[in-house]
């Protein structure tokens, strides 16, 4: 598995961005960009410098679900792997995210094992597909 994958971590809480970034570092990934909501994430995505998007849902400005829809609506990014890492835990929300085309969904608080599993699973299915 390539560790040169470029991640973009989007969360309005700087602590959570830092936690996910450190965790990705521990897994061997070193290219990690950050954004604090969908609006600031979009230009980074449009620039084409991202291979894997990890996003929160509940953020001021542009929430994660809207960001996901933007990503899926743009031919350049519509196949980008998107993992949602969020405190939103209602079944309807998870269904909505799935319908909007999310590749994985992790509810906070999460364990190291859960986050690793979901990332690995998405990367494996990308490699297979």
């Amino acid at each position: 598995m390539s560790t040169s994958i470029r991640f973009l971590v989007v969360d309005d809480f700087s602590t959570m961005r830092r936690i996910i970034k450190n965790f990705l570092n521990d897994l061997g990934y070193t290219s990690i960009a950050e954004a604090d909501d969908g609006k600031t994430a979009l230009p980074v995505l449009k620039a084409g410098d991202v291979d894997f998007l990890i996003t929160d849902w509940n953020m001021p400005g542009m929430p994660g679900l809207e960001l996901l829809r933007e990503v899926r609506g743009d031919p350049a990014t519509k196949k980008l792997p998107v993992l949602m890492v969020t405190a939103e835990a209602k079944r309807e929300q998870i269904v909505e995210a799935a319908q909007a085309g999310v590749n994985g969904y992790v509810v906070k608080p999460f364990t190291a094992q859960t986050l690793k599993e979901k990332i690995d699973k998405i990367l494996a299915s990308q490699a297979a597909g």
């Binding site: 809480f13 959570m16 936690i19 450190n22 509940n58 405190a87 906070k108 608080p109 190291a112």
Partner: peptide, 16 residues
């Protein structure tokens, strides 16, 4: 230390 790091996620959850 990894577990302690992940536990800091409380700040996000309580903060929200």
């Amino acid at each position: 230390l990894t577990e302690v790091m992940l536990a800091q996620g409380f700040q996000d959850l309580t903060g929200q």
